[in-house]
Nucleic acid binder design. Structure first.
Length: 306
RNA sequence: GGCGACGUAGCCAAGUGGUAAGGCAAGGGUCUGCAAAACCCUCAUUCCCCGGUUCGAAUCCGGGCGUCGCCU
């Protein structure tokens, strides 16, 4: 009979609060390895704008789920949760401590609460639905969802094309409504034991930090990185170009916007993103909230919490 | 000093007699495989100020103040 594994350490919170630095510190002190929970750091080639850990940092502490897919590939919360669980299992088998670091709320929930194992969607089905969206309109599709998955249709707003399409894709390709898949294994059924540390800053300070950080990224060659991606033939419509800043800087690269404009738009989008992250995490359970300024001064005090 | 234009929310802005569009920003929220995505809600009892005309004024008239432009 062996002792139970110690809980996973999770460092979460809005962007620009120092999650990476704290994660690195904790991993070194606890004999841990880092599991990335950032939806964009998984992409190869997106380095500066995603604040990806440097080669030096990655040499100091092993990082998982960083640089694992091509910018042209689509990733997902389910895929993330599967890979992250596998990484955690591996880390524990090595007798080390998993330290999950990231700000992607859905990814964290999928990992920590367990996401329903829905069969992968079908490209053909999706193509057909997209065609019908253009031809028949969203209202018709929502109406159809009302017949095929009433519970999900009632839950979704009529304007929410992304989710209406997804729900239809699930019933159509699996024959079982999304609401049924969820009922079979809802959030919380496969909860991971974890200490959740949330870094936070007062809104005004957070917004200033974002502005400074974007400026620093541009100084470090963010524009050149975007140009490199585009000249490599990556489409501006690629999944990875959903990333904040990459989208805006691409418009500068093709001559639509001045650098100043692209940078301002990036700061604005990042601020709105940080606000959404705060909204999401606000209601997540069991988070120990820590003031980012205090953690930066005295990171050692955090160790006892783990 | 004279003449002209303009003054509507934090910003941009529509409205020219019938009871304040819209966009951005901001704030709040939703979220089960695109999530740094997508979607939703809130946000001017009042239109620079004072007086007048009118049943009724952001809209018309007079005066004041301010901004900009041109002239001297």
């Amino acid at each position: 009979m062996s002792l139970p594994d110690p809980p996973v350490v999770v460092v979460l919170g809005p962007t620009a609060t120092g999650k990476s630095a704290l994660g690195l510190f904790l991993a070194e002190r606890l004999g841990g390895e880092i599991v990335n929970a950032d939806a964009l750091q998984v992409y190869r080639g997106l380095d500066i704008g995603t604040a990806k850990p440097t080669a030096e940092e990655r040499a100091r502490v092993p990082h998982h789920l960083v640089d694992v897919i091509e910018p042209s590939e689509r990733f997902s919360a389910g895929e993330f949760a599967r890979r992250a669980r596998a990484a955690i299992t591996g880390i524990r088998a090595r007798g080390r401590r998993p330290v999950v670091v990231g700000g992607s709320g859905l990814y964290l929930r999928a990992l920590l609460e367990g996401i329903s194992p829905i069969p992968p969607g079908d490209h053909e089905v999706r193509r057909r639905l997209l065609g019908r969206l253009e031809g028949e309109g969203l209202a018709t599709l929502h109406e159809e969802l009302r017949r095929r998955d009433p519970a999900t249709a009632a839950r979704l707003l009529p304007g929410d094309g992304q989710r209406i399409l997804r729900a239809l894709e699930v019933v159509e390709s699996s024959g079982t409504p999304l609401s049924e898949w969820i009922a079979r294994r809802p959030y919380g059924r496969e909860r991971l034991r974890a200490v959740r540390l949330g870094l936070t800053l007062p809104r005004a300070l957070l917004y200033d930090a974002i502005e400074r950080r974007v400026a620093r990224m541009v100084e470090r060659g963010w524009v050149e990185e975007v140009r490199r991606l585009l000249s490599r033939g990556l489409s501006p419509a690629a999944p990875a170009f959903q990333a904040i800043g990459y989208r805006q800087l691409a418009r500068h690269a093709v001559g639509d916007w001045s650098l100043e404009r692209a940078q301002e738009e990036t700061v604005g989008a990042t601020r709105r993103f940080a606000k959404r992250q705060q909204t999401w995490f606000r209601k997540e359970p069991d988070i120990l909230w820590l003031d980012a300024r205090e953690v930066e001064r005295e990171p050692a005090t955090v160790i006892e919490l783990c």
